[in-house]
Simulated scan of single mutants.
Amino acid sequence: MAPAAPAPSEHPPPRRQRGRSTRSRYPLWFLLPGGGLLVLLFVVPTATSFYFSLTRWTLFDSTFIGLENYATFFQDPQLFGSFVHTLVYAVITSVGKVLSGLALAILLNGRIIARGYLRAVVFFPVLVSAVGIGITFKVLFDPFDGLINRVLGIVGIDGPGWLTNPDLALTSVAMVDIWKGVGVSTLIFMAGLVAIPRDYYESAHIDGATDWQRFRFITLPLVGPATMTVVILNVISGLRSFELIWTMTGGGPGFTSDVLASVIYKKYQAGLYGLSTAGNVVMFVVVAAITIPLYRWFRRREVAQ
C-alpha cells in the first residue's frame, strides 16, 4: 500500500523576495561611528590639504594660485637628492626590520632562558620617544667624545664620524631606526608563527626534513600574511621618516641626509606654508604609488600559493 501524500501546510513559508531591498539595514548603523571618524580624521584633512596646496596661505588669509606651489617645489634643487635619500632610507630600514624581526621572532618563540624578559627588551625601544632616542644616539655617535668611538678606540679601531661623514650619516640614522622599530616587526612575526599548526613541523620532522627545509617550505610560506603586514608598515614608515633624521643630523652634513619630510619641514620653517603643503601632497602620492602596488603584489602571491 503506497504511503499517503503529506497534507499541505496551512501556513506555507513566505517566498523569499529577490533583490537588495530585503537586506536589513540594521548592521549598517554600526558602521556609522567608524565611518564618521574616518571622514572627520582622514577624508576632510586630506581634501583640505589638497585645496591649500593650491593656495598661498597664512593662518589668517589664503590666495588661490593654482599649481604654482607644485612647480616651485619640483624646481627645488634639493628635491631629487632628498627623494633618492628617502628611497634608500626606506629600503635599508624595511629590509633590516623584516630580516631582524623574523630572526628575533623565531628565536623568541623557541625554548630559551628568560624568553619573556628578552621579549620585553626587544619591544622596549618602540615605547621610547623617537626624539629622545635621536638625541641619545647623537651623543653616542659623537666622533670625539661619543661612547661608541671610545669603545672602538679601546680595541684599536679609529671610529668614523658616524653623523658627520656624508657617506655614513644616512646609514647611521637608518641603523638606529632599525633598532628602535624592530620590536613591532618581531611582535607581528611572533603572532604569525604562533598561528602555524605544530602538526606541520612534526610531520616534516618524521619525514626527515632538516631545520632549513622546515623553515623554507613551512615557516616562510605560512608566515606570508605577517610578512606582508611588516613590509607594508615599514615601507610606509621609511618613506615618511623624519624625527630621527631631524634630531640626529638635521638633514646634514650639507644635504646628504635630507629626505622628503625634512625638506618639507624646512619650507614650513621658512614660512612657505602653501609650498610645504604641496610637498606633503607629493609625499602622500609617492607613498601611495609605492605601497598600493606592493600590497597588490603580495595579495597576488598569497592567492597563487
Score class of each variant (00 low, 15 high):
residue 138 K to M: 05
residue 112 I to Y: 14
residue 136 T to Y: 09
residue 85 H to F: 10
residue 284 F to E: 01
residue 75 Q to L: 10
residue 75 Q to M: 09
residue 298 F to C: 05
residue 128 V to E: 11
residue 259 V to H: 02
residue 48 T to D: 10
residue 105 A to P: 07
residue 276 S to D: 01
residue 43 V to F: 10
residue 33 P to L: 07
residue 154 I to A: 07
residue 12 P to Q: 10
residue 269 Q to A: 08
residue 211 D to A: 15
residue 113 I to G: 08
residue 253 P to S: 04
residue 274 G to E: 00
residue 260 L to V: 08
residue 104 L to P: 07
residue 170 L to W: 00
residue 182 V to Q: 09
residue 134 G to H: 09
residue 274 G to A: 01
residue 102 L to T: 06
residue 193 L to I: 09
residue 238 G to W: 00
residue 238 G to T: 02
residue 46 T to A: 14
residue 39 V to M: 10
residue 7 A to V: 14
residue 281 V to M: 00
residue 56 R to E: 15
residue 153 G to C: 02
residue 236 I to Q: 03
residue 262 S to I: 05
residue 181 G to K: 06
residue 162 W to G: 03
residue 110 G to T: 08
residue 187 L to I: 14
residue 53 S to T: 12
residue 130 A to S: 15
residue 121 V to Y: 03
residue 116 G to N: 15
residue 245 I to E: 00
residue 190 M to W: 04
residue 255 F to L: 03
residue 227 T to F: 11
residue 203 S to N: 08
residue 194 V to R: 08
residue 178 I to Y: 01
residue 248 M to C: 04
residue 234 N to W: 02
residue 137 F to H: 07
residue 33 P to Q: 06
residue 177 D to E: 12
residue 259 V to K: 01
residue 210 T to S: 15
residue 171 T to W: 00
residue 83 F to Y: 10
residue 24 S to W: 04
residue 111 R to H: 14
residue 199 D to W: 03
residue 164 T to A: 09
residue 193 L to A: 08
residue 202 E to L: 09
residue 40 L to V: 12
residue 24 S to Y: 05
residue 202 E to C: 05
residue 278 A to M: 10
residue 226 A to F: 06
residue 2 A to I: 10
residue 165 N to K: 07
residue 123 F to G: 03
residue 9 S to W: 05
residue 274 G to K: 00
residue 221 P to Q: 11
residue 88 V to F: 01
residue 47 A to S: 09
residue 270 A to R: 02
residue 167 D to E: 13
residue 263 V to T: 01
residue 185 S to C: 13
residue 52 F to D: 00
residue 20 R to Y: 14
residue 58 T to V: 09
residue 276 S to L: 01
residue 120 A to R: 07
residue 10 E to P: 11
residue 229 T to Q: 08
residue 109 N to C: 13
residue 73 F to H: 03
residue 128 V to T: 13
residue 56 R to F: 07
residue 122 V to N: 03
residue 24 S to E: 04
residue 223 V to T: 15
residue 82 S to T: 11
residue 46 T to W: 09
residue 202 E to I: 03
residue 124 F to V: 04
residue 57 W to F: 15
residue 145 D to T: 14
residue 94 S to N: 15
residue 12 P to R: 10
residue 25 R to I: 10
residue 144 F to T: 12
residue 238 G to Y: 01
residue 240 R to L: 10
residue 238 G to A: 06
residue 190 M to V: 11
residue 45 P to M: 13
residue 302 E to A: 12
residue 102 L to S: 05
residue 201 Y to L: 06
residue 133 I to T: 14
residue 35 G to R: 07
residue 68 E to T: 11
residue 139 V to A: 12
residue 174 A to V: 00
residue 13 P to L: 14
residue 251 G to K: 00
residue 168 L to Q: 01
residue 170 L to E: 00
residue 211 D to M: 09
residue 249 T to I: 02
residue 110 G to E: 09
residue 177 D to L: 03
residue 40 L to I: 13
residue 233 L to M: 15
residue 246 W to R: 02
residue 36 G to C: 12
residue 297 W to E: 11
residue 88 V to N: 00
residue 35 G to M: 11
residue 198 R to L: 08
residue 107 L to F: 12
residue 242 F to L: 05
residue 201 Y to A: 04
residue 171 T to A: 03
residue 303 V to L: 10
residue 216 R to K: 13
residue 62 S to A: 15
residue 159 G to K: 06
